[in-house]
Design a protein around this nucleic acid. Structure first.
Lengths: 191, 191
DNA sequence: ATGTCCATGTAATCCGTTACATGATTAT
DNA sequence: ATAATCATGTAACGGATTACATGGACAT
């Protein structure tokens, strides 16, 4: 049942698929990919440059990408990775696999949950900091939306990215609202 | 105090602190803790029973919990874990540490981001499934709120849990709204 | 008969983070 | 001078997931 479907569709490894997805757009170096995972696709799936390089080595071993070195002068050589046919097949199979719920892990909520064992003024500051972080993210998303996705004639690929971005924007603006409410509620406890 | 012990404790390990927080409420077995991490505190920090047992072994080695076996007949014996003074110190120090932003990792958003490489009807179904999952979570949160946090005379600890739960509720109801919007947007692409 | 609950874990593997390592070019 | 950018990684360690393992009680 579950196990058979899992075996049939292959292993979990969503970072591998996220990298392959980026490479369907254009061949890239590990460095380029690391930057992509620190912005754009990184808004929905974060990865460090170390993870990217390790995963690229595995993808190469499995024949899902092909890598060739480009000589440069004055700079380190680049290694450009191109997705193979087998890699494209993996992406398609992955798209058929059911999605998992994103795992919840938020220390701030745990601290609220544990309010009796926590320094409340410090928690207050931590909520303020978090509020600023979400405001900053929201502003960044708005800037990207206006700059890249405000036209009428968007391709299908662009429309997909716009839907994801729109979800990110509602998520962040909801967090801004709710954190404000949480800060108020916490203030009422302490007085 | 036990500040030096805390330096040995490492940087990340929020599961350890989450377990200690649960044990400040009452001594518990690993089995009880695993269930707690599958509900209540698990709404904000998820962990499997394997993780819980492994972490309990470490906490015991470090003297942050004390464990004693309770004989039972007809059932496996229970091992009850009690937080020590050193464990309580760790919780307090943890509460002063800045919180990290929860890391974003959502395959569904990655699939939207990668719309050109994805089976769109299947993605549609996956969005519907996700919508149902968030609706179910929202309903569960509402039930808990009404059952346990609707009175007037809440303790401070209860008020903290209520704030966290309130944030969970707005988060889920926002997801329900936004997913509806995303499904509409995706439908307009496909037509 | 079948499955779920109780209650404990081990083993293998993969994912994620931090630190380390190199070294030229370019901007302040 | 100093820092950032370009561009590649390795090593060590801890966190998370999946599979495996045991075995009685009790309900359908």
């Amino acid at each position: 049942m579950h196990i058979i479907a899992y075996r049939f569709f292959g292993e979990i490894m969503a970072l591998a698929e996220a990298i392959l997805v980026c490479l369907t757009d254009r061949p890239m170096s590990g460095y380029d990919l690391a930057k992509t995972f620190d912005a754009s696709i990184g808004f929905f799936w974060r990865a460090s440059h170390q993870q990217v390089y390790r995963e690229l080595a595995r993808l190469r071993d499995k024949g899902l990408v092909e890598s060739r070195e480009i000589e440069q002068s004055g700079r380190p050589n680049r290694i450009i990775h191109t997705i193979t046919g087998a890699g494209e097949d993996i992406v398609h199979l992955w798209s058929l696999k059911p999605c998992r719920m994103p795992s919840v892990k938020d220390e701030l909520l745990v601290k609220l949950y544990a309010l009796d064992n926590v320094d409340i003024p410090v928690l207050h500051e931590q909520l303020d900091i978090r509020l600023d972080q979400h405001r900053a993210k929201l502003a960044a998303y708005h800037r990207i939306k206006e700059k890249f996705y405000d036209g009428q004639n968007l391709t299908r690929a662009q429309k997909g990215k716009l839907i994801a971005l729109t979800m990110g924007i509602s998520n962040e603006s909801q967090m801004v609202k709710t954190l404000g409410k949480a800060i108020t509620m916490l203030g009422e406890i302490d007085e």
